[in-house]
Simulated assay, not measured.
Amino acid sequence: MMQEFPGTPAWRKEMRSTLIEARQAIPVAARQQADAHLSERLDTLLGDVDGKTISLYWPFRGEPDLRKWAADCRDRGARLALPAVVAKAHPLEFRAWQQGDKLEKGVWNIPVPPQGADVVAPDIVLAPVVGLDANNFRLGYGGGFFDRTIADLRSKGHRPQVIGVGYTQQRMDTIHPHEFDIAMDEGVLVDAL
């Protein structure tokens, strides 16, 4: 096999595959314990969430499951949202959501609030990472949705706090960022082993 140069599309694809496989290999019990620790770290970082809109995500392929933490935030006065893919190469849409709301299958069959749900501008965006580097650049699934969305929000004068979340096993020295990659404001990774 030919060695790929860091930062190239083939290198990123290989890194994604390796990191996702490693994340999915973490035992469920270890992930659940790590998710509780991640929730505590987010509480410390964010403080009072009353009146804030938090966009989380529906966990996919071994990502941290923060739905219980989000429900606790809602109980403390936060409003919740889930990101939805509207179209390929377009920014995500943040749709209001709370436990019990009807969901439909989105891209990759990830549950999302249906079209027509209230579209909101989040104050806090949690972005699951495939990899996260020392400068808080996020390696995602390759669609560029989060980068495109953050750029779009900022161009409209809205600057939510964007936090990359995951496990320490996903830490990278660098993702070799490209010009369109946008660093997260914070990175919160916890050990899952």
Rank of each mutant, 00 (worst) to 15 (best):
R76H: 11
R16I: 04
A25I: 11
G47F: 04
H37E: 12
P6K: 01
A96G: 09
D181N: 08
V188S: 03
I163Q: 06
I26L: 15
Q3I: 15
A70T: 10
K13I: 12
F145S: 14
L45R: 10
D43A: 04
I182G: 08
A117K: 05
L139A: 08
S39C: 05
F145E: 06
R138S: 08
W11G: 01
K105D: 06
Q115L: 08
S155P: 00
V28D: 07
A134F: 06
G116K: 03
Q170H: 13
I175C: 11
V28R: 05
Q99A: 14
Q99I: 10
T174F: 09
G7C: 10
R12I: 04
P91V: 07
V120D: 12
G140C: 05
R148T: 14
L45G: 05
G164M: 08
D147R: 01
L103K: 00
D133E: 09
V165A: 01
D173T: 13
A87L: 09
T53G: 04
D185C: 01
P128N: 08
D181G: 02
F145A: 11
N135Q: 09
A34W: 07
L92W: 10
I54S: 03
P83Q: 11
A192Q: 08
R95Q: 02
A25P: 09
W58C: 02
W58H: 06
V130A: 09
T44Y: 04
L46Y: 06
R31H: 07
D50S: 12
L82P: 02
M172D: 01
F145R: 06
G187E: 09
H37W: 03
D65H: 03
A87D: 12
G47P: 06
R74W: 14
L139F: 15
L193N: 08
T18S: 02
A36S: 07
G7T: 06
